[in-house]
Nucleic acid binder design. Structure first.
Length: 558
DNA sequence: GGGCTGGTGGCAT
DNA sequence: TTCCAATGCCACCAGCCC
């Protein structure tokens, strides 16, 4: 598995938002910004503040002031306008639901209540309290690793990432409201003294390897969620091992694990213990940093724990779901029960079941080391591009990267998807499933190019290509394919149809090729429309593709 | 009409 | 001036088949 995948996931999984007791929000009097209120509703300001800000641990921070600064820094940008559009969509969705809710509230819901109570009884019967699951989460992982090499950062606000986006921040920086998934330039407005260190994934991987070695000792099948986070099933740790580690209870065992992690890495970890993954995950956030929390394997303890929990604490409930449920009066998990008949009527069966199970504190107990990968993708952000030739080059560039990742992973796939982020931040995803498997850069570029051209004209700030419906490569030819000659290249297709777009025989293609020019500045480029390999410079190539596109419009091609 | 598959959008980490 | 990258899951809809 590509290690980069895990590292990148980590950017968002690092949501350890609790703070040391002594922290308080620093606010110089002369720069105090009054919370703005120019007609923008609170939901948008909360939305702009970023993910995870509603989670526990921010009690010591003046959220109003932080949000006001973020709002001021974002106002007027394309990003801001897009957030406003998204906010309106959610608002509309909520309005529609509230109309429905007012109708439902007038109805006699005794039958629905009985149905839900029946579901609860059924769920109760399936409750498994026999397992001891632990979720371990390293504290401010990237930042803490950096502090190992440079201890002076321990007393200064520091974050890891870039001017565009932060992965994580140390606890000093968090007292300023600086946190993961925040753009660096906004973080600097919150904390002008903040130092932003670039990523050093090799270091984080090395530290992670040490942490995982400890995990493996206690559960060889531990399930890593990212570089700094994993689930362990401690049920099977034998009494003998517990005695050897001088620990009898699950809590003592986890204490031992955390101590071993510290011995090995000088890094602190927080942990949660419970009868399933849902509870363990929530608990690991409770005593951050460098702490642990346990919910005992007892139905009443679990119910009591869950009832007092804000719904946002549930893994899978984000800002949007929180807003939607809040509009229905559901803020805490106990509210799910109080409003069970209404929610039963309004939510989809799957969503309702998820909420009800969460209220009951029921979750999966399956801790598995490996899961099969479902998709593999690459994406890049860049300065706005709209010229056809530039976009084609970008497709080819990404296709090469994806083909390499596929080759490294030894897989091929049938479904190609493109992801486009317009300069307006509007997101578009398009995909196409082929009747055969592909893995070469050429095939990927051609299909991705076809998808892209249907969206033209566009001005893009991000492009991504994803391959899904995956299957392992069975022979070496498949692996060699991408590195072999450019065209034609069909060995992975074998008995399947030819993918080359149909081009009429009398189609006049070669005008550009016969032109004179400085061959030094020309490179070999494949037009994704007519699939010809051309020796052209960028300008000529753009003109060629534009010509092909106009031919598509009049139905001459494809 | 119900199940299946594929495509798109959205939400989540 | 500046808002990442990779992946999974689900809802909803349309089209197809039996």
């Amino acid at each position: 598995m590509s290690s980069q995948v895990i590292e990148e996931q980590d950017l968002f999984l690092d949501d350890d938002t609790n703070f040391p007791e002594q922290t308080s929000f620093w606010w110089p009097a002369e720069t105090t910004t009054k919370p703005v209120n120019d007609g923008v509703i609170d939901s948008l300001r909360t939305q702009l503040a970023g993910p995870s800000t509603g989670k526990a641990g921010l009690a010591n921070i003046d959220k109003e002031k932080v949000n006001a600064i973020i709002y001021e820094a974002s106002k007027g940008s394309a990003y801001f306008e897009n957030e406003r559009r998204k906010d309106k969509t959610v608002t509309k969705r909520i309005e529609t639901m509230l109309i429905e809710a007012s109708k439902v509230r007038e109805m006699d819901l005794s039958m629905e209540t009985r149905i839900v109570d029946g579901m609860i009884r059924e769920f109760e019967e399936s409750r498994d309290l026999s397992q001891t699951i632990c979720h371990v989460d390293m504290d401010a992982f990237y930042a803490s690793v950096e502090e190992l090499d440079a201890p002076e950062w321990k007393n200064k606000p520091m974050a890891v990432g870039s001017n565009a986006m932060l992965s994580t921040s140390n606890y000093i920086a968090r007292t300023f409201g600086v946190r993961s998934a925040m753009p660096g330039f906004i973080a600097l407005k919150l904390c002008p003294d903040l130092c932003i260190l670039p990523h050093n994934f090799k270091k984080y991987q090395a530290a992670s390897d040490k942490v995982r070695a400890v995990f493996a000792k206690y559960d060889p099948d531990f399930s890593p969620m990212s570089l700094d986070e994993a689930y362990l099933n401690l049920t099977k740790v034998s009494l003998k091992e517990r005695l050897e580690t001088n620990s009898m209870t699950a809590s003592e065992l986890v204490q031992t694990i955390r101590e071993e992690i510290f011995q090995s890495t000088q890094l602190t970890a927080s942990a949660g213990i419970g009868p399933n993954k849902l509870l363990a995950k929530i608990c690991s956030d409770f005593q951050k940093p460098n702490g642990q929390f346990e919910v005992s394997n007892d139905r009443e303890a679990v119910q009591k724990f869950m009832a007092a929990l804000p719904i946002r604490k549930i893994f899978g409930v984000g800002r949007v779901t929180e807003r939607v449920l809040d509009s229905l009066g559901v803020k805490m998990c106990s509210d799910i029960y109080a409003h069970r008949a209404l929610l039963y009527k309004l939510l989809s069966p799957i969503s309702f079941k998820f909420m009800l199970r969460s209220y009951l504190g029921l979750g999966s107990t399956v801790v598995k080391a490996e899961t099969t990968r479902k998709s593999i993708s690459v994406e890049r952000t860049f300065d706005a591009l709209s010229a056809v030739g530039d976009l084609i080059l970008k497709v080819e560039e990404l296709a090469v990267l994806l083909a390499k990742d596929l080759a490294d992973a030894g897989i091929k796939g049938k479904t190609i998807g493109i992801k486009l982020k317009l300069s307006s931040f509007e997101l578009r995803v398009r995909s196409k499933t082929m009747p055969f498997y592909i893995s070469s850069a050429e095939d990927i570029a051609r299909i991705a190019g076809e998808l892209l051209f249907k969206e033209m004209p566009v001005s893009l700030r991000l492009m991504g290509i994803r391959m899904s419906s995956l299957q392992p490569l069975v022979n070496e030819n498949g692996l060699k394919k991408y590195f072999s000659a450019k065209i034609p290249n069909k060995q992975s297709i074998e008995d399947e149809e030819d993918m080359t777009p149909y081009i009429p025989e009398d189609y006049p293609m070669e005008a550009e090729l016969s032109e004179e020019g400085d061959i030094e500045n020309k490179s070999s480029l494949t037009c994704p429309i007519c699939n010809r390999c051309l020796q052209l410079d960028n300008l000529e190539f753009n003109q060629h593709v534009d010509g092909c596109l106009s031919k598509i419009e009049v139905g001459l091609l494809l």
